[in-house]
Write a protein that binds this DNA or RNA. Structure first.
Length: 336
DNA sequence: CATCCGTGGAC
DNA sequence: TGTCCAAGGAT
């Protein structure tokens, strides 16, 4: 496995030379690393940056997070997506305080037992915070390592050949830096599309580059096609107030608020005839597993027209999804 | 193991 | 405009 050793050495040399600084790097506090890792799940560094800064200012410690109302956490998360992460992070803080005396587990098994921490995040925290030579295979790790190996089969973090090569790569003395270097290389150079092989610091170790089939690697499992849904939304606003209801605890956009919507989450009948409302056009939104087109209707000063929900002041709106904000903006209701 | 979970940016 | 995709996890 001399290839693995020389690859890791060249990658770390590049990492030291690049000196890419990120706000959650070099933190002695595991909490900052955990928060950043959870935010970074399926989310770009660019998108995470402002959220991380605000979140750490608002909830500086696990104790502060555990003591905060869930609605405050959701408000800090709104717009970032995958809201179950916010629920899990809040739950994680409470478990840490109540069951671990605020002490972080230091093993991958212990970390993985916490809500919101899976295989990747447990390995990443164990390596970056506690210096353990664990595997932290995410999308970057799979892409970078499979290209270096020239591995042309369908691949995932569970693929034995990939895990074997990764194990041979991880330097016992700098496992955290190694995985962060893999992330940096994967984001800046070994990108999914248009990889910058000409300036790659580990080109000489790369079987895919030598063979010229980097763009065919990795071969990922096929994705499902996205169905289309349609529905309606009714927006009431009056004197700087808007009628909102809270979504259920589980499922899509859990516990976020929205104007009443119908027809796109299963069978439902319209409580009002849209004919007598003001049509405000449509809002389109793309979720991971379906696309959505909502017809938006608005009316002013009506009596309480929906069984659930309440008026909310524009000055202190509850946590809203990006979809809810789009719908409100469609009626020229000022949000954000 | 397949499905469900957001969002915005790049091309 | 459509498509892909980004430091995944829970069920």
């Amino acid at each position: 496995m001399m290839d693995a050793i020389s690859f890791a050495g060249a990658l770390l040399a590049w990492y030291d030379d690049q000196g890419i600084v990120l706000p959650w790097r070099g933190h002695p506090d595991p909490y900052a690393v955990v928060v950043s890792e959870v935010m970074l799940q399926q989310t770009t560094v660019t998108a995470v940056m402002p959220y991380f800064a605000r979140f750490m200012a608002r909830f500086p410690t696990p104790h502060a997070l555990a003591a905060a109302p869930l609605d405050d956490v959701l408000a800090a998360w709104q717009g970032l997506g995958y809201y179950r992460r916010a629920h899990n992070l809040h739950k994680m803080a409470r478990v840490l305080v109540s069951e671990h005396h605020g002490q972080w587990p230091t093993t991958t098994q212990g970390l993985k037992a916490l809500p919101g921490i899976g295989d990747y995040t447990a390995g990443a925290v164990a390596a970056m915070v506690f210096g353990q030579p664990t595997l932290a295979l995410d999308g970057n790790g799979v892409r970078v390592l499979s290209r270096i190996m020239g591995f042309t089969d369908v691949v995932s973090p569970a693929t034995p050949a990939l895990r074997a090569f990764a194990t041979a790569c991880v330097p016992k003395d700098r496992p955290g830096d190694f995985w962060q270097a893999v992330m940096d290389l994967g984001r800046t150079t070994c990108r999914p599309k248009n990889p910058a092989c000409l300036t790659c610091p580990v080109r000489d170790c790369c079987v895919g580059w030598a063979r010229g089939d980097v763009n065919e690697i990795p071969r990922l499992a096929g994705k499902k096609e996205r169905p289309h849904r349609t529905g309606q939304a009714f927006v009431l606003h009056h004197h700087g107030h808007v009628w909102l209801r809270r979504r259920p605890d589980q499922g899509l956009l859990p516990r976020l608020y929205e104007p009443p919507t119908f027809g796109w989450e299963g069978p439902s009948t319209l409580p009002h005839d849209p004919t007598f409302w003001e049509a405000c056009g449509v809002v389109r939104h793309i979720f991971t597993h379906f696309s959505l087109e909502i017809q938006v209707f608005s009316s002013h000063g009506m009596d309480v027209p929906f069984p659930d929900g309440a008026w909310h002041s524009r000055a202190s709106l509850p946590p809203l999804s990006s979809l809810a904000k789009k719908i409100l903006q469609q009626t020229l209701f000022w949000v954000d």
